[in-house]
């Protein structure tokens, strides 16, 4: 009885890590359990049917989408590896975040799609309110941008 009570009492203060799946996104791979918990509380779950439009080019950038399941088709090509299709655990919106805050491309659901949406303002707020978390997120953004530029340079050379 006593150990059970202690376990229950501990769980009131230290909740179990329910958001390990976030580690599969390169943007979140360095976040600790507490930071993942905070991040998850900002993520909205959205579902799109195959063929449904997610956003169009030149729309204002408000949300970064993380793919939980299904496939997303981008036009024109902007994925780092040169593919038009984004799959599970990839994301879209980070590149646009550092441009003019407008969508650079359009996106449609290629199959039934489950996404997690992070508001751009929440993203900025997270960086401002928790500098440790902010540094990790910005570092991950830099890595992503660096990979993207390297990939495009390689494609241009060949």
């Amino acid at each position: 009885m006593a150990p059970r009570f202690l376990l229950w009492f501990k769980r009131l203060f230290v909740s179990p890590d329910l958001h390990k799946d976030l580690l599969k996104y390169s943007l979140f791979k360095e976040l600790n359990a507490h930071q993942r918990k905070i991040m998850a509380s900002f993520l909205h779950e959205r579902e799109f049917k195959a063929g449904e439009s997610i956003f169009e080019a030149n729309y204002p950038l408000e949300v970064i989408y993380f793919i939980e399941s299904g496939e997303m088709e981008l036009t024109p090509i902007l994925a780092a590896d040169g593919n038009t299709v984004l799959k599970k655990h990839q994301f879209v919106g980070v590149l646009d975040l550092f441009s003019e805050k407008k969508r650079l491309n359009s996106a449609n659901a290629r199959t039934d799609l489950k996404l997690r949406a992070l508001s751009e303002k929440d993203f900025q707020e997270l960086i401002a309110k928790d500098p440790a978390l902010g540094v990790k997120l910005l570092k991950a953004c830099c890595c992503f941008l660096s990979d993207f530029i390297a990939e495009h340079s390689r494609q241009n050379r060949s």
Binding site: H44, R46, F55, Y59, P60, E62, V63, A117
Partner: peptide
């Protein structure tokens, strides 16, 4: 999140802006 889940996909981003 519960309130936002009621919003159709077409109006999701605009609702997020207004809510904020």
């Amino acid at each position: 999140r519960a309130l936002m889940s009621l919003v159709p996909n077409k109006y999701f981003e605009i609702t997020l802006i207004l809510l904020k």
